[in-house]
């Protein structure tokens, strides 16, 4: 039987799913063990047990100086920045994407402009943002918005253009105005795609968030990682990295489930 036709059974599939995670964990544990047996004070690869202990301390014990549990404050402020940035970018991306996709005049005006703008590396203009918007919340949110909006506009205008012409013409023969076609034909079909595009742009959004926090902030997940780097506190850094990964994964999964719940027709098939 050809390899392309061999499929793993359910137990094997579950095993294979866990395998890379287990391998990475084992490799880390062995590496950490080797280094710690040579030098018990080694900070580079802390033992998994130490990371677990650190995680417990970070999540449940308040900070000695401020009396707050910093982990939760970091998480809340970072998620707020991320949510604002991604939300604003999604709104701009959706409206401009649909306008460009539906109206030839807007397309002629902005399609080329957006294509050029999207080539600007957002991190290169981060200093400009700090100078213009100050070091507060605004510049961080604006960096995320600037970072992912051009991608969203391009992707959503393309999706709008891909709506079969037949469907638009059909709506026209039913007497629909441009507004009606936009709201009742194009928008419902672009919305599921918006959620997909947002899922794809969450990676870059996290990148821009952590970059902005690392440079100028006094609270936030990215700020904390870069702060404790000075003390070589790998156990804290790894805890934060794992936490960010978990958050990103959960957000992605939630968006996927939301899309399935809101747009049952995308799953519909004979």
């Amino acid at each position: 039987m050809r390899l392309i036709n061999r499929k793993p059974g359910r137990p094997l599939a579950l095993f294979l799913l866990m395998l890379p995670f287990a391998l990475v964990f084992i490799a880390y544990a062995i590496g950490s063990d080797i280094r710690l047996s040579e030098n018990p004070a080694d900070k580079l690869l802390p033992a998994p047990s130490k990371i677990a202990a650190t995680a417990e301390r970070l999540f449940f014990e308040p900070d000695k100086r401020s009396g707050r549990i910093l982990m939760w404050h970091d998480t809340a402020i970072s998620l707020q920045r991320l949510g604002l940035g991604v939300g604003i970018a999604a709104l701009i991306g959706l409206s401009f994407g649909m306008l460009i996709g539906l109206l030839p005049h807007v397309r002629a005006t902005f399609a080329g402009f957006v294509a050029v703008i999207s080539m600007i590396p957002p991190l290169a203009i981060l200093p400009i943002l700090f100078i213009t918007f100050g070091l507060g919340e605004l510049s961080k949110v604006v960096l995320i918005v600037i970072g992912i909006t051009p991608f969203l506009i391009r992707d959503l205008s393309q999706r709008t253009l891909e709506i079969p012409r037949e469907m638009i013409v059909k709506a026209e023969t039913l007497g629909a105005s441009t507004l009606t076609i936009a709201l009742r034909v194009a928008l419902p079909q672009v919305l599921p795609r918006l959620i997909q595009s947002v899922r794809l742009s969450l990676g870059p959004a996290w990148l821009f968030l952590i970059a902005a926090e690392a440079i100028a902030s006094d609270l936030g997940l990215g700020y904390r990682i870069f702060l404790v780097r000075r003390y070589l506190a790998m156990d804290v850094i790894l805890t934060y990295v794992l936490w960010i990964t978990l958050l990103a994964f959960v957000i992605d999964l939630a968006l996927k489930k939301l899309s399935e719940r809101l747009f049952p027709w995308t799953e519909a098939a004979l």
Partner: peptide, 20 residues
């Protein structure tokens, strides 16, 4: 100058709205 209520159309595909 453009399709309107006077004319109805059925294509081979894509004549219904998948989200309704």
């Amino acid at each position: 100058v453009e399709p309107g209520l006077e004319r109805g159309v059925v294509f081979q595909r894509y004549s219904t709205f998948p989200h309704l």
